[in-house]
């Protein structure tokens, strides 16, 4: 759904943070908002009601400046994770150019991660997209919590989620910021490479 304006040499793309409820999608965007102030184009819009009944979504527009002679803009979204908000989740996913799947490292959320990834696969299909083709990054979030509660090993999460996909992955802590920038940058990179095939935007 990226928009490429040839005249102004401007490309605008959409990246969606997907994942089970409470995995840390909003926290990712909050960290990006705080840390990359210069690139943030406007206010972050967080539409959480009552703490977090994320029926809605978060929205963060960014301008990454000139890349290969082209002005690159990106809009970050999060989806409502709760199972029952399937129809709004699909609406937010529509037109995504790249996806960050934020998985929860808590052992107790193991199954929820897998179900959410399945849900992503399904919803992408319904949008006419293919999980094996769309730029996708896995983020294993909440690595900082290991001291106080059971978390899964990276190997286990790789085995659960990335065995077939074989996409880049990042251990992260959205709370401390570890891995957050890396995740986004890698996703941007894949997305722009992907869009190059379509638009030939780079000079």
């Amino acid at each position: 759904m990226a928009v490429f304006n040839i005249k102004n040499r401007e490309i605008e793309c959409k990246i969606v943070y997907y994942g089970p409820g409470r995995s840390g999608k909003t926290t990712n965007l909050e960290y990006i908002f705080k840390t990359y102030k210069k690139q943030v184009a406007d206010q972050m819009v967080t539409i959480d009601t009552e703490g977090d009944r994320t029926l809605f979504f978060d929205f963060l527009p960014m301008g990454l400046g000139k890349i290969k002679g082209c002005d690159v803009k990106v809009q970050l979204y999060t989806v409502p994770g709760q199972v029952q908000y399937s129809s709004t989740r699909k609406l937010v996913l529509k037109g995504a150019d790249g996806i960050v799947f934020v998985a929860d490292s808590f052992t107790i959320r193991r199954e929820k991660n897998m179900l959410s990834l399945k849900d992503l696969d399904q919803n992408l299909k319904e949008c006419g997209l293919n999980i094996f083709k769309i730029p996708l990054i896995l983020q294993y979030n909440k690595r900082d919590a290991g001291g106080s509660i059971p978390i899964m090993s990276i190997e286990m999460m790789q085995n659960d989620l990335n065995k077939q996909l074989k996409v880049p992955y990042f251990p992260a802590s959205a709370l401390t910021g570890e891995g957050v920038g890396g995740t986004l940058k890698e996703c941007m990179k894949l997305t722009l490479v992907h869009l190059q095939k379509e638009f030939k935007w780079a000079q």
């Binding site: 409470r22 703490g51 808590f106 107790i108 959320r109 919590a145 106080s148 509660i149 059971p150």
Partner: peptide, 16 residues
């Protein structure tokens, strides 16, 4: 109990 508390603060109510 500590685990339960953490899940609660994370909004993981059923787990808590």
């Amino acid at each position: 109990l500590r685990e339960a508390e953490i899940y609660r603060t994370q909004g993981l109510f059923n787990e808590a």
